[in-house]
């Protein structure tokens, strides 16, 4: 078996797609539709959830209790996705998400995992030297802030609810969502009013 799967990756994909189409398991159209569906998930969706949680205490409570229900409440499709857990950052506690074994990522609400999240260096360093790792993004946590590194090893997917930045009083949800980036919801960066 080893020999044939060692073929060039591009050729292997073409061959597999052709066989799956012949067997009625995946047509080119289904593949195109699936790509469109996956492309529709982006960090903008998670950012909408974060902004709403910053403005609406009842939504924040729902999001922390049941991330999947909170995503669905904003119309984000979660059917077939693993359960979503939400980790709340506070003035005393900062969460960082990693998957040391592969690259489990809250794709339903953040889209495809970024390159760095899948890299060996990130996966190796996050659990051992998380503060040194954050420095790669220029993120420096005050010493009184404890870190909790969440290694995503099993059936949940985890996103971070960051702390709402100072100087955003009176901002609406849309404007708030605009300052929340992908990395803020994994914990490598923190949002800032800009």
């Amino acid at each position: 078996m080893a020999g044939v799967i060692e073929a060039d990756s591009e050729r292997l994909l073409v061959a597999i797609e052709s066989l799956l189409a012949k067997k009625g398991l995946a047509s080119p159209q289904e593949i195109a539709e699936r790509i469109a569906l996956t492309d529709a998930a982006s960090p903008g969706q998670g950012a909408r959830m974060v902004a709403k949680a910053w403005c609406d205490p009842a939504y924040r409570a729902l999001m922390l209790a049941d991330g999947t229900a909170a995503a669905e409440a904003l119309g984000i499709p979660m059917r077939g996705a693993p359960p979503l857990g939400v980790l709340e950052n506070t003035a005393e506690l900062h969460h960082l998400v990693v998957c040391t074994l592969c690259s489990c990522y809250p794709r339903a609400v953040l889209g495809y995992p970024p390159f760095w999240f899948k890299s060996s260096a990130y996966r190796a360093r996050a659990v051992r030297d998380p503060r040194g790792l954050l420095a790669e993004w220029g993120t420096v946590l005050p010493e009184n802030v404890r870190m909790r590194v969440v290694d995503s090893t099993a059936d949940y997917r985890w996103m971070v609810l960051p702390v709402r930045p100072a100087a955003t009083d009176g901002w609406g949800e849309e404007r708030l969502a605009g300052i929340v980036r992908e990395g803020d919801m994994i914990g490598v960066t923190v949002p800032a009013a800009s």
Binding site: T100, A121, A124, R125, V127, R128, E136, V188
Partner: peptide, 16 residues
Amino acid sequence: HDLGGVAKYACQPVDT
């Protein structure tokens, strides 16, 4: 594949 804490990456920068 079980990379958590593996020392050889300790000084490897992350391509952000």
